[in-house]
């Protein structure tokens, strides 16, 4: 029963990721694609968590926090590139 519920939630998260992938391919503007990439990263976190429950191990818990940090940094970098044109400024007061 428990395995079945975990498999069902994996399938639901996979379908959600596929829908985000549709938005990633189809999205009319660049911010749409950035948001969908960020959400795909968060879905990957969920998939990793469910997989670590299914495999009955806690060896992947580092991966979860790691993916969260990387998704945040990537989204911030993309947003700054869209807004200012450069990612790392030399002097922001100029």
């Amino acid at each position: 029963m428990f395995e079945w519920v975990m498999g069902l939630s994996l399938v639901i998260v996979a379908i959600s990721t596929l829908m985000y992938f549709y938005r990633l391919v189809k999205g009319p503007t660049v911010p749409d694609r950035i948001i969908s990439l960020d959400a795909i990263g968060i879905n990957l976190i969920g998939i990793t968590a469910i997989f670590s429950i299914v495999m009955n191990t806690d060896a992947f818990l580092e991966v979860i926090l790691l993916l969260g940090v990387l998704a945040f940094i990537g989204t911030v970098a993309f947003s700054k590139f869209l807004e200012k044109g450069e990612i790392i400024e030399n002097d922001r007061d100029k």
């Binding site: 945040f72 940094i73 911030v76 970098a77 700054k80 790392i88 400024e89 030399n90 002097d91 922001r92």
Partner: peptide, 9 residues
């Protein structure tokens, strides 16, 4: 992340 939020200086 520090470089992104602020600048190189």
């Amino acid at each position: 992340l520090l470089l992104l939020a602020f600048d190189v200086k």
